[in-house]
C-alpha cells in the first residue's frame, strides 16, 4: 500500500496521536475506563498500522523483533517483580500497601507498575504476532 498517497499521509498524521492516546489510556486508567490491556492493544495497533501502510521491512526497522520479543518477557517480569517487591518489603506477594509508608500511596505505585507491565507484554505480543503472520511467505 506504499503508493497510496492519501493512506500514507493520513496514517503518518494519525500514528503519533494513536500512541499518545494509548499512553493516556495507560496512565489515566486508574480514574476513567482504560488500563494496561487496552493501552497495550492500542499501542500495538499503531505499529501494525505502520507495518500495513509502509511495509513490513520498515516496521521491523522501527520496532526491531529482537527488542520486541524481549519486551514480551519484560512485561511479565515487571508484574512479577512488583509482586516480589511487596514480598521483600515485608508484605505478601502482590501486596502493594507496603511499598510506601502510606498504604494508599503504595497501592497507587503498585497498580501503576503492574499496569505498565501488562501494557508492555500486551503491546509487544500483538506486535510480535502481527510481524510473524504478515512476514510469513506464501
Amino acid at each position: 500500500m506504499r503508493h497510496h498517497r492519501v493512506l500514507r499521509i493520513i496514517s503518518k498524521l494519525l500514528i503519533p496521536f494513536i500512541m499518545l492516546f494509548a499512553l493516556y489510556v495507560q496512565f489515566h486508567g486508574d480514574f476513567g475506563p482504560g488500563g494496561g490491556f487496552q493501552a497495550g492493544v492500542i499501542f500495538g495497533s499503531a505499529f501494525i498500522l505502520y507495518g500495513l501502510i509502509f511495509g513490513l521491512e520498515y516496521a521491523r526497522m522501527v520496532a526491531p523483533p529482537a527488542i520486541v520479543t524481549r519486551l514480551v518477557a519484560a512485561g511479565v517480569l515487571i508484574f512479577a517483580g512488583t509482586g516480589y517487591a511487596g514480598l521483600f518489603a515485608g508484605g505478601n506477594f502482590l501486596d502493594y500497601g507496603v511499598l510506601k509508608s502510606d498504604p494508599v500511596a503504595g497501592q497507587h505505585l503498585g497498580i501503576l507498575l503492574v499496569e505498565f507491565g501488562v501494557g508492555t507484554t500486551v503491546a509487544a505480543s500483538m506486535i510480535t504476532i502481527f510481524f510473524l503472520f504478515a512476514g510469513r511467505d506464501r
Binding site: 488500563g35 490491556f37 497495550g40 492493544v41 500486551v122 505480543s125 500483538m126 504476532i129 510473524l132 503472520f133 510469513r136
Partner: peptide, 20 residues
Amino acid sequence: ILTAIVVGVATTALGLALVV
C-alpha cells in the same frame, strides 16, 4: 471478561498459527 478478551485474541492467534 476484560482479561478474557485479551487472552482470547492471543489464543486465536495461536489457533491461526496452527492453521497456517
